[in-house]
Design a protein around this nucleic acid. Structure first.
Length: 344
DNA sequence: AAGCCGGGGTG
DNA sequence: CACCCAGGCTT
């Protein structure tokens, strides 16, 4: 086995994390954790993971559940396509694999929401398979250790990193859980983005970045771009019982499949929108202040516009438009800015 | 190959 | 604020 792998495995035994709730040889639990951990930090995931596992203890219960229940447990975690794909994949495991999670990385990767790295992680942790992962931690560790220049988001650099990752695997499959965990732990606790703790690193003595003093320059950062500004008006429409009107968002796009407030382009549109689109006659209520919600790729200024229906509620509930009590709304799959509004 | 998709932890 | 996180899918 490579000296690199041996040193990481030894380091993991003494200094790695061993008490994370998903560190079990159970493909369902490993899978769930890997999906939740995509672009999401460990501390954020733990509570969601425990709640999700309690409600859906196995792949069969997840497959049988309504999507809305899955989204409700995902509410606040972000990247909601992950929840939709998780649900879809559970149904595929039941239908195409007889309820037994597939063992081969190539099979695992056919499930929606699982790419090369996640398939490899599931196979390594659950089935001792020799397959390399390449997540943000590994990209940083390898780019520094091997002195690989260039933004890892580009195909050329990513291919280099995959080839290197493949070449460094331990010889024995039985070492794969420890080795895979070691890379993640090293990236998360020692080879950190800022101020890496090189003296604590098991591979610092032949690390190119360390030897050349380039830890702060590697990996090459993503090229900067201006963040676009957008704005929207969210209608806080209440009926005479104080219930709130929510609208289910389209399955794709921002907050896909979540229940959110009806929106209009401007406050001037609001009354017309209520009458023509929502079929409601409303009167304005006291205004609320604008607030900003920040995404990775744009900033959204939200103007909440409170209003009340006048007279009887002509609107019938349907699949995309429904009245919620505050409690019901907080229990549903709703985006974070709405949760913030309801808790304000 | 580049853009899209959330929210929060951290310095 | 700015950066980045156990990435994958779509175009």
């Amino acid at each position: 086995m490579s000296a690199f792998a041996a040193r990481l495995i030894a380091w993991q035994r003494d200094h790695g994390r061993h008490d994370l709730p998903w560190q079990v040889a159970d493909a369902y639990k490993v899978w769930l954790s890997e999906i939740m951990l995509q672009q999401t930090q460990v501390t954020t995931v733990i509570d969601y993971y425990q709640r999700f596992l309690q409600r859906f203890p196995d792949v069969a219960s997840l497959a049988a559940a309504p999507l809305d229940d899955v989204l409700a447990l995902w509410s606040g975690l972000g990247y909601y396509t992950r929840a939709r794909n998780l649900h879809k994949a559970a149904q595929k495991v039941m239908a195409d694999f007889g309820g037994a999670f597939p063992r081969l990385p190539a099979e695992i990767e056919t499930l929606p929401g699982i790419g090369r790295s996640t398939a490899a992680a599931i196979a390594a942790f659950s089935f001792d398979t020799r397959s390399a992962i390449l997540d943000g931690n590994v990209k940083r560790v390898l780019a520094r250790w091997a002195g690989i220049d260039g933004f890892p988001g580009t195909k050329v650099i990513e291919n280099k990193l995959w080839t290197l990752a493949d070449s460094l695997l331990p010889a024995s499959g039985s070492d794969m859980p420890a080795y895979t965990q070691a890379q993640m732990d090293l990236g998360a606790t020692v080879c950190t983005p800022k101020k890496p703790a090189c003296p604590a690193c098991p591979v610092s003595d032949d690390c190119i970045a360390r030897m050349t003093g380039r830890q702060a320059e590697l990996p090459t950062p993503k090229p900067k771009k201006a963040v676009p500004e957008r704005s929207t008006v969210m209608l806080l429409i209440r009926d005479d019982a104080g219930r709130l009107l929510l609208q289910k968002r389209p399955p794709t796009g921002i907050w896909g499949g979540l229940w959110s407030l009806p929106e209009t382009g401007s406050t001037l549109d609001a009354e017309r929108h209520c009458a023509n689109v929502l079929k409601l006659k409303v009167q304005p209520d006291p205004a609320l202040p604008d607030f900003v919600h920040v995404f990775t790729h744009f900033r959204l200024t939200i103007t909440p516009l409170p209003a009340s229906v006048t007279g009887a509620t002509a609107l019938a509930d349907d699949d995309t438009l429904r009245w919620f009590t505050r409690t019901e709304a907080l229990a549903a799959g709703i985006p974070t800015p709405l949760r913030r509004l309801l808790n304000a």
